[in-house]
Design a protein around this nucleic acid. Structure first.
Lengths: 145, 145
DNA sequence: GTATCTGCAAACCCTTTGCAATAAG
DNA sequence: CTTATTGCAAAGGGTTTGCAGATAC
């Protein structure tokens, strides 16, 4: 299986774009984080490791990574977008505790079935889905506020 | 069945907050729009009707309407949040064409089943879900880009 | 009367962009 | 060499907030 770096290198070549050290270290950092992240926290964690790139370069890279199928927007919360790397994983959805913000990942084959129903009923070609389920986890549920 | 205005009036009373003409005309406008809206388009459509309130008042009202269960955030796109009024409707999800941005609403009982599975598996009390399906509608699918 | 609400304009904050220097191919 | 990319700092643009006057209750 190709690495995310190989995939991205080919993606760039096809678009006549360039593979730079900055792009490489950002991708490496993203794939080293096994969690949801936002641009600012990514930037800070890179600075701590002396892997210095500008925020602008990160912002400019994100849409490319999404287009290349390596990264996905997960949710928008508190004024900013959160991402995760998706290459090499099965697709999954998110169950979020609205109070402590903890996230459980899950997948369910019934979603694919729903997609098929929609494709027929509305005559769409389905590209992807995003199911966010919000609730209270066992710890937060029992709190008296 | 209580009207959205009655519901909101009671909600405010319970919180020691006030029912003002500004809040009333904003809610009336929101419930007159049977579509997804963002704050700016709501503001503009109110100005056209000489129903003048400041954008700040709309922004300040939105979280209250959400807390009162009258309105929901639908999706975040192009840098802004889109809402819809939900009181008096069955819950539904959205199928969006990524190209022409057209939206189809749908509901599917399998989502409730998925929620039940999640509630058991992770021991969560489920509050709500948001399923966005993205695809290409029949017109956009056939376009040569 | 008193505490909340309003409009205004400024502040905020995440994100995008113009520019000159740099570097990939 | 040519053209894309970088870092910086400034600009954008949606949203929030401080404040003084207005108003619900």
């Amino acid at each position: 299986m190709k690495s995310e770096l190989e995939i991205f290198r080919e993606f760039l070549k096809k678009k006549g774009m360039r593979y730079t050290p900055e792009r490489e270290i950002i991708i490496k950092e993203i794939f080293a984080i096994h969690d949801h992240f936002d641009v600012d926290s990514l930037y800070i964690s890179m600075r701590k490791k002396d892997a210095r790139v500008s925020k602008a370069s990160i912002y400019r890279l994100m849409p490319l990574l999404i287009e290349a199928g390596l990264v996905e927007e997960v949710f928008f919360d508190g004024g900013q977008m959160y991402y995760e790397h998706i290459y090499g994983h099965d697709h999954h959805c998110h169950l979020r505790c609205v109070k402590c913000k903890k996230i459980q990942e899950f997948s369910d084959s019934r979603i694919r079935e729903i997609e098929q129903t929609l494709a027929q009923r509305f005559d769409y070609r389905i590209i992807r889905h995003k199911l966010e389920v919000m609730g209270l986890c066992s710890e937060c549920r029992d709190d008296n506020k």
